[in-house]
């Protein structure tokens, strides 16, 4: 437990805080750009699917950013605590804040006289955020390129404005047409992306560590 708290505190201070700040600004600035009063369910879907879900990209992709520095990566890989454990802790914190921000945003919309099903809309925003963020994490793990990891989910998001035909069940804005079933695909797709990303990182870390070890590489 002590280790968990220590890792969490370091992650919060050096990794999560700036991204959490950006997400918070994104949510607080929303009323400047989009209507948040007296909305019906379709209009709420537009706000949540098209705007609030973007915090998934902001919060989830940075999970691997601390490992970009090879020194830090080698150092953490040499520690007794496995990298896998660090990644899971970082993901859990990102998910927790995603849940809090998404929930709070919906709570404010309810207070502003908007009419919608809270549970359904909460699942909607989480599914979209997990899918976009998970996609970025997966690309990050696969190519070890942070900029590319932001590029792909953002381009995917843009493609969705072109229509739903080619994207099928992975269309992001289905709730704006009243279709909920796609959200299950996005939700589980997001989970698969995240699990795949952590798995790739685990393999890559153990491969790189064992290569270094056999070459006589030093691990401070």
């Amino acid at each position: 437990m002590e280790k968990f708290l220590k890792i969490s505190a370091v992650n919060f201070k050096y990794n999560l805080l700036p991204h959490l700040t950006v997400s918070l600004i994104l949510c607080l600035a929303a009323p400047l750009f989009i209507g948040t009063k007296n909305l019906d369910a379709y209009q709420v879907a537009k706000v949540m699917e098209g705007y609030v879900a973007l915090i998934g990209i902001v919060l989830l992709i940075p999970v691997f950013i601390p490992d970009m520095n090879k020194d830090i990566r080698d150092l953490t890989a040499s520690k007794q605590t496995p990298m896998f454990f660090l990644h899971v802790i970082r993901i859990l914190w990102a998910l927790l804040f995603l849940l809090i921000l998404g929930g709070l945003f919906l709570f404010v919309l309810k207070r502003e006289n908007c009419v919608f099903d809270f549970g359904e809309m909460f699942y909607t925003v989480m599914a979209n955020a997990l899918f976009l963020g998970g996609m970025g994490m997966f690309v990050f793990a696969l190519f070890d390129q942070a900029v590319f990891a932001y590029m792909i989910p953002l381009v995917y998001y843009v493609i969705n404005f072109g229509g739903r035909k080619q994207l099928g069940n992975f269309y992001l804005f289905s709730m704006q047409a009243g279709h909920f079933s796609e959200k299950h695909y996005l939700f589980f797709g997001g989970l698969v992306f995240m699990a795949g990303a952590v798995f790739i990182r685990k393999i890559a870390t153990s491969l790189s560590f064992s290569l270094c070890y056999h070459k006589g590489g030093s691990h401070k």
């Binding site: 400047l32 750009f33 989009i34 209507g35 009063k37 007296n38 019906d40």
Partner: peptide, 17 residues
């Protein structure tokens, strides 16, 4: 349907009471 406004130069939908 909501009314279109551009309060800070950007599109924003307004639903009236």
């Amino acid at each position: 349907r909501p009314f279109a406004t551009y309060p800070v130069g950007f599109y924003k939908e307004i639903t009236l009471s």
